[in-house]
Design a protein around this nucleic acid. Structure first.
Lengths: 232, 232
DNA sequence: GTCGCCGTATGACGGCGGTCATACCCATCG
DNA sequence: CGATGGGTATGACCGCCGTCATACGGCGAC
C-alpha cells in the first residue's frame, strides 16, 4: 500500500470529488492523512467529535454497544466513504465507535477548518447533506428490517446486499463471489443475533449448497433461494 | 386553534429561531403555512421530496412499513420539530411516511427556495446539520435498543422517555403524567412488537400499579420499577 | 512437541413472544 | 332497538432463538 497524496485522496472521496482543482488545493491545505493500523479504534462512542474523516484506503467497522452489552455493527465502510460526519455539530459525542478492520488511511479535517470550508464553498453543503440523508435513509431501512423479521431473513438480505455491492461472478461454481471476509461473530453483530445462531444458519446453508464460506469472502450459490428466504 | 402568522411560526421552530428579524422576514417571504387535518397523510414513503416542513401546531407520526408488512413508528413529532429534512437532497424519495395525529399546521418551504436560503445564510446550515445529526444519533440509539433488548424493557424505556420529554407532576397519585394519548396498536408500532404483547404488558402494569392508562395520556406511578425493567 | 487460545460446530433446554381464537365494552348508525 | 366496527383483554399453543455446555481443528508461543 503506497500512501497517496492528500490531493489524490480528495479526488477519491465522494464529498470532494466535484471540486475544481483550485478549490481542491485549498481543501488540501487543511486536510491531513492519518494511518490507523488494523485493530485500532479510530473513535469511540461517547467521545467528543473533533474532525471530519473520510476513508482513503481500508475497511472500517462502525458499531454501537446495545443496552444488553452486545455489539451491533451499524455499517462497514470502505474507501471513499465519509466517517464521523454524523457528529460534526459542535463537538457532539459520537453515537457509535469505529474500528479499523485493515490498515486504514483516513483523510482528516479538523472541525473549525471544516466549518470554514462549508461557509466558503456552499456546494460542499449539498454533498454533505446528501451523504447524511442517504445514511439516514439506510438507518431507517435497517431499523424497519430488524423488527419483526426472522434472523434467517436478515442473513439472506445481508448477503444479497453484499453481492449487489461488491459481488463478482464466480467462474468455478456459477455463483457470485463477495470478497468480504467476516467472522461468524461479525455476521451475528451485523444482524443483531448471537454467534451460535449465526453459526447454525451458515452451517446449514453450507450443507444445502446455498452459500459457501471461503477464506476471503462468501460465494452465493442459490441466489433465488436466498431471495425467497429474504422475503419471508 | 388560531392560525399563527408565518413569522410567529418561524419564531417557534428550532432551525429558524436564531435568525435576525430582517432575515426572518426574508425567510417568511418564501414560507407558506399549510393545515393537514387529523388522519391525513402529509407525505408517503417513496414519494419524491419537494419541500422542507416544520411543525407549528399538532402532532405528526413518522413511520415506515417493515418487510413483513407491519408498521414501525420512527418518531412522533410535535410543534417546533422539522419534518422531511431527511429527504431534502435533490428530490430523493422520503424513506418513511408521515401522518397527522391531530389537526396540524406546517410551515412549508419549497426545495429550490430552501437551498437558496441555505446558500445565502450559512448559519442556517449549522442548524440543519445539528438537527440531522441529532436525529441520526437518535436512530442509531433506537437501532441498538431494538436488538437484544426484551420487549418489556423497550416499553419501559419508551415511557421513561415520554415522562422526561413531556411529563408533568400528577398531584392525585404522586406520579408523573405524560399527556400523550396512544393506542395499544401505536405502542406496539413504537416498540416493534404486536398489539397482543402490548396489551399484555400494559394490562399487567395496570394491575401492578406501575403505569395507568388514561383517556388523554399515561400516569407513571412506579418510576423506579420502570427504570429497573428498562435496565434489564 | 505441548499448551493455550480462538474460531467454528453441534446438541439440549427453556422462555419470550408471535399467532390464532374468543370475548367484552362502547360508540355509532340504520 | 339490534347491528356493526374498533379498541381492549385473555387464554392456548408452539416455534424461533437465546443460553449453556461440550467438542474439535488450526495456529502461535515457548
Amino acid at each position: 500500500m503506497t500512501t497517496p497524496s492528500v490531493e489524490d485522496a480528495l479526488r477519491r472521496t465522494a464529498v470532494f470529488r466535484r471540486l475544481s482543482p483550485a478549490d481542491r488545493t485549498r481543501v488540501a491545505a487543511v486536510a491531513r492523512l492519518r494511518v490507523h493500523p488494523r485493530g485500532m479504534m479510530i473513535f469511540t462512542e461517547g467521545d467528543p467529535s473533533d474532525a471530519f474523516l473520510a476513508i482513503v484506503e481500508g475497511r472500517v467497522k462502525v458499531f454501537k454497544s446495545t443496552p444488553g452489552g452486545k455489539e451491533l455493527i451499524l455499517e462497514i465502510f470502505g474507501p471513499g466513504d465519509p466517517l464521523g460526519a454524523v457528529a460534526l455539530y459542535e463537538g457532539a459525542p459520537f453515537p457509535a465507535s469505529a474500528l479499523a478492520l485493515d490498515d486504514t488511511t483516513c483523510l482528516r479535517i479538523e472541525q473549525p477548518d471544516f466549518f470554514r470550508l462549508l461557509e466558503a464553498h456552499p456546494p460542499l453543503v449539498r454533498g454533505l447533506l446528501s451523504g447524511l440523508t442517504i445514511r439516514l435513509a439506510e438507518l431507517t431501512r435497517r431499523l424497519a428490517e430488524l423488527t419483526g423479521a426472522r434472523v434467517e431473513a436478515r442473513f439472506a438480505r445481508l448477503f444479497l446486499k453484499l453481492a449487489e455491492q461488491i459481488g463478482r461472478p464466480d467462474p468455478g461454481r456459477g455463483g457470485v463471489f463477495a470478497p468480504m471476509p467476516l467472522s461468524r461473530q461479525e455476521l451475528a453483530d451485523l444482524t443483531g443475533t448471537t454467534i451460535e445462531t449465526a453459526i447454525r444458519i451458515m452451517s446449514r446453508w453450507q450443507k444445502e449448497h446455498v452459500l459457501l464460506t471461503e477464506k476471503d469472502g462468501f460465494v452465493l450459490i442459490d441466489r433465488a433461494g436466498l431471495e425467497a428466504t429474504a422475503a419471508s
